[in-house]
Simulated scan of single mutants.
Amino acid sequence: MFTKQQRSGIFALILLILIFQCVIYVVDFSSEEFENDTALIHAYRAEVDSLKQLKLKNSQPKIFPFNPNFITDYKGYTLGMSAEELDRLHEFRKGNKWINSTKEFQKVTEVSDALLAEISPYFKFPDWVTNPKPKHEYNSSFSDNSKPKTFTEKQDLNTASASQLKKVNGIGEALSERIVNYRSRIGGFVADVQLKEVYGLSAEVIDRVLNQFTVKSGTPITKIHINTATIEELVTIKYIDYEIAYNIIEQRTLREGFKSLDELTKVKGFPVKKSEIIELYLTFD
C-alpha cells in the first residue's frame, strides 16, 4: 500500500523516535540552576505562608478599652459572656446603678475568674472613679447652698443669671457664662438633664446646681413616636443621623416595635451615653 519512498520515510521516523528515547533515557538534563530555582520556590512559598498567617492573625477581632457599664448583647457575646450574665448586668443597670470596679462587675454578672482575668484589663472607668478628687471641707459660705431645696424653693434654671449660678460651689465665671450661652443657643432648657450637655460640668457640680435650680418654664417638646416615625423625622433628633435612623427602623421592623428605651439602646450605633437627651424627644406609648 505504501511506495518505496513512503516506507523509507516511516522507517526513518521510527529510527528517530528510538534515538530520542535513548537520549532522554541516557542523558541527565538536571542542572544546578534548576535545583537553585527549586530552593528559591520553597523560600517564596514559606514567605507566602508566613504572610497568610500574619493576615489571619490581624483579621482576628481586637478588643479596645471600654466601660463595662455599657456592654451590649453583641459586645457581651464577642467577649464570651453568657446570656444569663448579660441579663444580670442589664437588670443591675436598669436600677440606674453603676459598676465602678472589676470586683463589683464580677459580683453583679457572676462571670468566671478565667473570663474576668481575660477581659478586665480592657475595662475603662471614668476618671472620677479611677482618680477621685479628694474631698475638701468647704467654708460656711457654701453650706446653705449645698442643702437641697424643694421644687417650690428652687429658682427657675431658665431665668437664673450668671452671677446667681456662680454662687453654686464649683461654678466659676467661665462655667456660669457657658451655661447661660448654651441656654440661649437652644432656646431655653426643657429638662434638667440638658445640663449634661454643657461642656465642663462634672456630675457632682450638676447635682449641686440642681439642688438650687430646676427647669420651671420653657417651650414643651413635640415628641416623636418611635414606632411610627420616619427616617426624616428621626434625623431631626439630636445625635441621631441617617445611619442610626435606618438601623432603628430596621430593628423596629424585626422587633415589631420598641417597648422601652432599653430596647432602643441595643440598636447598632445608638449613642447610649446620650440616651437621656434623646429620650426627651421620643414617646413609646
Rank of each mutant, 00 (worst) to 15 (best):
G95F: 05
E91A: 10
I179M: 02
E177H: 04
K266D: 15
G170I: 10
T265V: 11
D144S: 15
Y281C: 03
L210F: 06
G257R: 00
Y281D: 01
H42L: 14
I277N: 03
K259P: 12
V198K: 00
V205K: 02
A160I: 02
T214M: 13
P220H: 03
E137I: 13
N169D: 12
K97S: 14
P220V: 00
Q6C: 02
L13K: 11
L261R: 08
L18T: 13
I186G: 03
A174I: 15
A191L: 04
F123M: 05
I278P: 05
L15P: 04
K196P: 01
K273I: 09
K273L: 11
D87C: 01
R88D: 10
I237S: 08
K133C: 04
K216N: 07
I277W: 05
R185Y: 09
V193S: 13
S140A: 12
E153V: 10
T130K: 13
L56D: 15
N58E: 12
K223F: 14
F34T: 05
S161E: 10
Y138L: 15
R185G: 05
L13I: 03
S161N: 07
S275D: 08
E232R: 07
K147D: 10
G95H: 10
G170R: 06
I248Q: 06
V272P: 06
K274Y: 10
G172I: 14
D192K: 08
L175D: 07
M1I: 04
I179K: 00
A203T: 14
N58T: 09
T102W: 07
I41W: 02
S120F: 03
Q155N: 12
K167S: 10
D113W: 01
F213P: 00
I240G: 12
Y138A: 15
F151P: 04
K268C: 07
K223C: 13
H136P: 00
G218W: 01
I41P: 02
V193K: 13
D113V: 03
E91Y: 06
D285L: 08
K133H: 08
I244T: 03
E177F: 02
A117N: 15
Y122S: 12
S184M: 07
Y182L: 01
S50Y: 08
E177D: 09
I244F: 09
P148N: 00
L165K: 04
G200T: 14
K62L: 07
K133Q: 11
K52T: 12
I244V: 09
A245W: 02
R183Y: 06
D241N: 14
I63D: 11
K107I: 12
P61A: 01
L18C: 15
E47V: 10
D192E: 12
R7Q: 14
T72I: 02
F189C: 05
Y199K: 14
T152G: 13
T230L: 04
T236M: 09
N211Q: 07
N100E: 13
A39F: 05
V209A: 02
S143F: 00
E276K: 11
A229V: 01
T214S: 14
I237V: 10
K62D: 08
Y25R: 09
V111R: 08
A12D: 11
T78H: 15
I19R: 01
L234R: 00
N96G: 02
Q155C: 06
L13S: 13
L115M: 10
N169H: 13
E104K: 08
R252K: 11
L79H: 09
P68K: 01
R45Y: 06
